[in-house]
Every structure is written in structure tokens, then in C-alpha cells.
Amino acid sequence: MPSTPILFFPGIMGSRLYFPNSRQYWDPDSTLRMVWWAPLWPFRSDDDNRKQLHFTEPAGVIVEAVPGEAQSLELGWGGVVWSFYGKYLKGLRELADNGRVYAVGYDWRQDLRSLGEFAADKIRRALEATGAPKVTLVGHSMGGLVLRAALQASPDLSGAVERVLFVCQPAAGAVVLYRRLFTGLVRGLDGGNGVADRTFRLILGNSRAGFVGNMSGLPGGVQLLPTRYFPPDNSQHWHAALNNGTTHAGLYLNATRPPGLVAANAHPDPDVRDDFQARLEETADAHEWLGRPELPTPIDGWQLAGIDQETDVSIQFDSKGVPIPGRSAGGDDTVPRLSATAMQLSDASRTALLSNLRHGTACEDARVMAWTRGILS
């Protein structure tokens, strides 16, 4: 029996974007293009990044061929970060019907609800282009949430999807995002002292104000916060306030405690704080809309999580409100195992755990390809 066409959805920031107003690129495949985003005074500031990365700024996925790869333009391979996903896409090609593996780049800044509509349209187009009765969907990280959003936005597609593979999906969110909204990205917790790590911290914000400023314009990014479906660990929630009945919406939108994310010291600019609060309100709605981590019948679901990497799994605050992240070897350095395995699947055999798998490079790991091949062969 021939295999189905495959659609692959990358993680957040794993799609290459072009911004026509500033004529700049989000393109991790190019050091030169990415260095431009680094807020180095007096040439650029955190506020420049906030404004030019803001979700209201027009941007489109880069459309170009991958050198040496036939049909890569038709299949959309140039729209995703090749250095992250090229090896995996070539492996998927061996498993797909007639080698048809579509890479679906998307504007990761946007709200999950609009991304769900976008992804549903891409799935329909693939079905029409191939004439296949069904497709297989594979998502890395946020790509898994986008796939779930597509099925939520268009329930009629469930009969046209044979299976879905989730690789390191933050199925119930990531604690690291909540912590960064208090600390910014800091050396040690968020990468080392290498040039790439330092540049990444500069771009996204190495202070609370810088990070909150950028996130105030990124609905899709903020929606990676932990949801109410994040499983407790030994009856203890990832945030102590949740043990006392605080809701996630109450946690995020509270301005003073436990402490809340919209506190006055989150950012010095009240307009940015208002923008950020709007993102948090959207997040509460998007989480409820997306719902429980599960797939509609009769789709066959599989999930893979990394373990044994130091990962933010909980957070506490001292008497002065200083965040103290709880870190353990309980994830892939970004997504805790409890979240990456939160999908309600038909049986335990559809969940795989890989030791020392790192989130950002998961699709470059030969073991992930072997797991994928075992399911799709």
C-alpha cells in the first residue's frame, strides 16, 4: 500500500520570513540577515525590534528553491530553516507517496486561531494537488499546536488525515516562556556564551523589559505559555498559585500577584504594557478554543519527547518577588516531558521518550528520523 503525502510544519521561528516595510528577513540560515536584528546601541534598540517584529507588520514566507533539491520550490522547502530541518525533510521524502513532502512555513508571530485557518487551507491544497484521499501531518514544537489548531478550525479535515506525528510539541505549554517574562533571556539558563546564543538573547530580549516588549507584539509566541491542561507533577502544579485554585487566566492577567505578568514593572512604557495585556487576554481565549490536548477520531496520533536535559519545569518566587526557576532533567531543555507527552493518545505505545534530545536540534537527530521511519514505513 503506498504511503500518503506528508505535510511538515516547523516550530516557532523555524519559518523564513520577509518583511517588506523594513526590507529585512527573519532567516536563521543567514548570519548576516540575523545580525541585523540584534539591538546594538546606537544603531538599533529593543524598541526597534518590537515595532518591526510586531504581528501587525506585514510579512510573508520566503518562496525560493533549495539549491540541489529538485521540486523544492513546488514543495515549499525554501520556506523553512534548512539548517534546522533539511536533513529531516530529505528523510521524510523517502517515506512519502512519490516523495511528496510539503514543508509549510508560516508566520509564527500570529494567533493560533488564524494559523489554524492558514494550515487547514494548506492541507486542503495538498489534497487537491496530489489527489490523495489522506495526508500525514508532522509537526515540530509549535508546529504541532498549529496542526491541532487546523483540525479545530476545520473539523471536516479529520477524515482526510491518516496520522499526526508530534515532535517535542509543547502540547500544554512551556514553563520557560513564563520565566523569561520575568527575567528575559539570561546566560546559563538560555544558552551559553557562544556568538549564536548571545545574538539570540539580544534579539529576543536579555532583560525583562526587552523580552516583554518583543512578546507584546507576538500573539503566537505568548500562546506557548502553559495551559490549564499542563499536568501536575506528583500532585504539584508548575506554579504554586495553581495549587490554591488560581486559574491560568487569573495568573497571567493579575497585575500584582502571585506576581502577575501585567505588573507595572514589566515594562516602563504603558503602551507596551497595554499591548502585552491584550496578548495575554488573547492567550486565555486561544487556550480555551484549542482545548484539551487530543486528536479527533479516527486520526492516529504519535508523540515524541526529549528527557534528561535541564529544563524549566516549575517556578517559585522569593519574598521580594524574584523568580526562582525549578529546573530538572525532565525535558528537552525547552519543553518539559509532562507537556510534550500531554496528548491523550490511544495507548502508551504511541509515546516515545528519547534521552538527551535537545529541542532546537531534535529534527537533526538520527533517532527522531528512526522513530519517524518506524511509524511511516
Rank of each mutant, 00 (worst) to 15 (best):
S3A: 13
L7W: 01
M13L: 13
G14M: 07
Y18K: 09
S22C: 10
D27G: 00
P28I: 02
P28C: 04
S30V: 01
L32M: 05
V35I: 15
W41Y: 12
P42S: 03
F43P: 00
D47R: 07
D48H: 09
R50C: 03
R50G: 02
K51C: 09
Q52M: 13
E57P: 08
V61T: 11
V63F: 12
V63I: 14
P67Y: 11
P67T: 08
S72N: 12
L73F: 15
G78H: 05
G79T: 03
L89S: 03
K90A: 13
K90M: 15
R93K: 15
R93F: 07
L95H: 11
N98S: 14
R100E: 14
V101M: 09
Y102V: 12
W108L: 08
Q110A: 08
L112G: 08
S114V: 11
G116L: 05
A120Y: 01
K122Q: 15
K122T: 06
E128V: 14
A132D: 13
K134Q: 15
L137W: 04
G139L: 08
S141R: 02
L145I: 13
A150H: 02
S154D: 15
P155L: 09
P155D: 07
P155T: 01
D156M: 10
E162G: 02
E162A: 13
V164M: 01
V164E: 00
V167C: 12
A171V: 07
G173F: 06
T183I: 11
V195C: 06
D197I: 03
T199K: 05
A209E: 15
G210L: 08
G221M: 09
Q223I: 09
Q223H: 07
L224M: 15
T227Y: 07
F230I: 00
S235Y: 05
S235D: 14
H237A: 14
A249F: 10
Y252V: 12
R257P: 00
V262K: 06
A264W: 04
D271G: 15
R273S: 04
F276Q: 04
A278F: 01
R279E: 09
L280E: 01
H287W: 10
H287Q: 14
E288S: 11
L290M: 09
G291S: 10
A305V: 03
G306I: 03
Q309G: 10
I315P: 06
Q316H: 06
F317N: 04
D318S: 04
K320D: 14
I324F: 03
I324P: 00
S328Q: 13
A329M: 11
A329G: 05
G331Q: 04
T334G: 08
T334F: 12
V335Q: 02
L338E: 10
S339Y: 02
T341R: 05
A348L: 10
S349V: 00
S349T: 06
T351M: 05
A352L: 11
L354K: 00
G360R: 06
C363S: 05
D365I: 04
D365E: 05
A370H: 11
W371Y: 15
